[in-house]
């Protein structure tokens, strides 16, 4: 088998197989992620670090499902586990719910003010964490979506995860102003808790310690995007940079 976890639900390149989700026999393309297969069939599995445009890493562990036959079952993250013929999957077993609740309770202790965590926790009946909060203002849940977006979609890897558990954080190299950053703001847009600081004032966007002048449209004069970002596009596509100095509406 070629290893490719795919999110595509309809255009499948692989053969369909039958598996069982919560006792119901279903068809799904072999190699598709269990998460996608389950969601496609209407099963509700919460996620925090999953995004259909980005490769899954299994970081947040909210999408846990239980696989296998009693008593030899185990929890796996459905975002990376591939559909296999005959697989028995439970999306809401006691074990799954226990794991999921604990993950949410831990995240709530880490980021008590993060709206998305509060909401997901509330859905499971958790309104308060029994654990200790180090920093009540903390908002980063370390889901890694920003890092992946910057690396996989933007293609510049301006930010990355630094350090291990005790001091883990999303950071620029050496914690200095991000040299590779093009100011596109993808990281801030994708962030589920809105923790990445980012301002726009007087034609300048400030993000990751750097100021990016915004490019006005050659026709209407409205700001399009940071000049650096447009230059990055021009470099990738090989088009002349002026091509990008006209906004979508005026093109």
């Amino acid at each position: 088998m070629v290893w490719k976890i795919t999110d595509e639900t309809f255009e499948t390149i692989t053969e369909e197989v039958i598996l069982s989700i919560d006792g119901i026999s279903l068809r799904a393309p072999q190699g598709q992620s269990l998460l996608m297969a389950a969601r496609h069939h209407g099963f509700d599995i919460p996620t925090l670090c999953h995004h259909s445009d980005l490769p899954s890493e299994g970081n947040c562990r909210l999408c846990l499902v239980e696989i296998g036959e009693h008593p030899r079952t185990r929890l796996v993250n459905s975002c990376t586990y591939p559909v296999e013929a005959g697989l028995l999957v439970q999306t809401a077993s006691e074990k799954v719910l226990q794991g999921r609740r604990m993950v949410l309770e831990l995240l709530l202790a880490r980021c008590p003010k993060a709206k998305i965590v509060q909401d997901l926790a509330a859905q499971m009946g958790i309104y308060e964490s029994r654990f200790k909060t180090d920093d009540p203002e903390e908002l980063c849940i370390l889901c890694g979506l920003c890092v992946r977006a910057c690396r996989e979609v933007v293609g510049v890897s301006a930010i990355s995860m630094a350090h291990r558990t005790p001091g883990k954080l999303v950071a620029t190299p050496f914690l200095e102003a991000a040299e590779a950053c093009i100011g596109c703001g993808s990281c801030a847009f994708i962030c589920p808790t809105g923790v990445i600081p980012y301002t726009e004032k007087d034609g300048v966007r400030t993000i990751w310690g750097r100021d990016f002048p915004l490019q006005p449209c050659n026709v209407c004069g409205n700001f399009i995007a940071p000049t650096a970002q447009l230059e990055h596009w021009a470099k990738i596509t090989g088009d002349p940079v002026e091509h990008y100095f006209v906004c979508k509406d005026c093109r």
């Binding site: 947040c60 562990r61 993950v103 831990l106 995240l107 350090h163 005790p166």
Partner: peptide
């Protein structure tokens, strides 16, 4: 520190 249960669990 990649996954929540280990990272936050150990801390707690």
């Amino acid at each position: 520190g990649k996954c929540t249960p280990c990272r936050e669990g150990l801390r707690q």
